[in-house]
Computed example of a mutant assay.
Amino acid sequence: MRACRQARPAARVAAVWLLVAAMATAAWLLPRIAQPPQYHRYADPYVCFGTPHCLDIGSNLLFLLAGAAGLRYLGTTAASRAFIAPAEAWPFRLLFLAVFLVGLGSAYYHLAPDNQRLVWDRAPLAFALMSWLGANLCERVSLKAGLRLLPLLLIAGPASVAYWAWSEARGIGDLRPYLLVQASAMLVVPLLLCLYAPRYTGDRDVLAITGCYVLALACDVLDHQIAALTGLVSGHTLKHVFAALAVYGVLLRLKRRRIVEEGT
């Protein structure tokens, strides 16, 4: 890792863009990825007051709490010590706001799952992922570069969901741009940790946050298998739990990280 960080700045930037270009090229060359017809058939067996899948609905409270806790912390004087420059806080504000909206949008979707409602779940999630990527660009590459790219990232995230909804409505559903957004947040951030020296402590926390979100996605894919294995909880409910834990991890890192002194 130290050897990667000793590379010339131009080479490090090129490595990041090369990864992004490789992912985009792979997404372009892959055949269209349609959403499975059975996607909305969740395994959560619980019914509350006549409402099915109530754990899938109720677990969204974790997103509301995580988002609200993050926004509340960023409004305190203690939060000012978590950033070298005040502008660095903006991607995190947008992240926690988006997570709060994920809680609302996902609960709305799970009340009556269909493609139209799914947009209100996925759009804020894509916004949150791009905010997280922007926050790490500000921290690792440079604040100026990160803030310049942030608006583009925040447009690209929801735009990928809009494209999926547009394609789905025309019978040619295509998840590739949305999956590219997911992959970018999971792969580019660890690469930034490898290439750029830290300004703050807590690199392991960033990797743990990424790992927690990957685990959440795995639980989603194994929704029915986990429900059958445990007999208590579905994979999608656990997805909400682990994804919310990833957000709490972001908040905990902000609270306990310290500025890395030059030469250490």
Rank of each mutant, 00 (worst) to 15 (best):
E261I: 06
L64T: 03
D44C: 08
V161W: 03
Y46K: 09
P31H: 05
I33D: 07
L152K: 04
G157M: 12
G105D: 05
R12I: 02
L238A: 04
F100G: 13
D174W: 08
P124A: 09
F63C: 04
L125Y: 10
P113Q: 15
L232P: 01
A82S: 10
V247D: 02
L71N: 04
A15V: 09
P45T: 04
R140T: 01
F242N: 03
V161P: 00
V99M: 11
R72M: 11
F242M: 08
A156L: 10
R81F: 11
V20D: 03
D114T: 02
A34F: 11
L64G: 11
F63N: 07
D174G: 02
R5D: 11
V247K: 00
W28N: 05
R258G: 01
P86L: 00
G263W: 11
L195N: 15
T237E: 08
R122G: 06
R253L: 13
L215Q: 07
A228H: 07
C212F: 12
I57C: 01
S142P: 02
L192D: 04
A126W: 06
L62C: 04
P45Q: 03
A68D: 07
T77K: 15
G103L: 03
Q225P: 02
G146A: 00
V141G: 00
P177L: 06
A159F: 10
D220R: 12
T77R: 12
H236A: 05
A14E: 06
S160N: 07
G231N: 10
L64V: 08
A244Y: 03
A24I: 05
L251R: 05
N136P: 01
V119G: 06
L195C: 10
I209D: 09
D114R: 09
L254V: 09
G249L: 13
A159W: 14
F92E: 12
